[in-house]
């Protein structure tokens, strides 16, 4: 995943923080997903405007005291999962 890769939430998903998790409902598939606290933080940050991979990582690093390499690896894994499940979309440029 490259620093300038940009992502946006799918507009087919509704989300709500419930009991310490962020629960996502894919409206098209009717499928639920649960994100932990870090996943929820990233989901909130993704918002409705495209966010660069590097900005997402910086946002997480600002909240957690963790090595940058580990955060980049975790964010990349989560973004791949979100995209694979149709919950987020990679945007050009």
């Amino acid at each position: 995943m490259e620093a300038n890769d940009s992502f946006i939430r799918s507009d087919e998903v509704v989300a709500r923080e419930v009991g310490g998790e962020t629960v996502l409902l894919d409206l098209q598939a009717g499928t639920y997903f649960g994100l932990n606290e870090t996943g929820g933080l990233i989901w909130q940050y993704l918002g409705d405007e495209p966010r660069k991979f590097s900005d997402i990582c910086s946002h997480v690093l600002a909240e957690y005291d963790a090595p940058a390499e580990a955060v980049e690896s975790d964010v990349a894994a989560l973004m791949k999962d979100l995209i694979a499940n149709g919950l987020a979309v990679q945007k050009d440029g």
Binding site: D11, E12, V14, R16, V18, G19, G20, E21, V23, L25, L27, G30, Y32, G34
Partner: peptide
């Protein structure tokens, strides 16, 4: 837990228009 209760209860709720986001 609430986060697991939500998907459970969603199955038992009534929706008229599944395309009305």
């Amino acid at each position: 837990d609430p986060q697991h209760a939500l998907p459970e209860v969603m199955q038992h709720a009534f929706v008229l228009d599944v395309e009305d986001k």
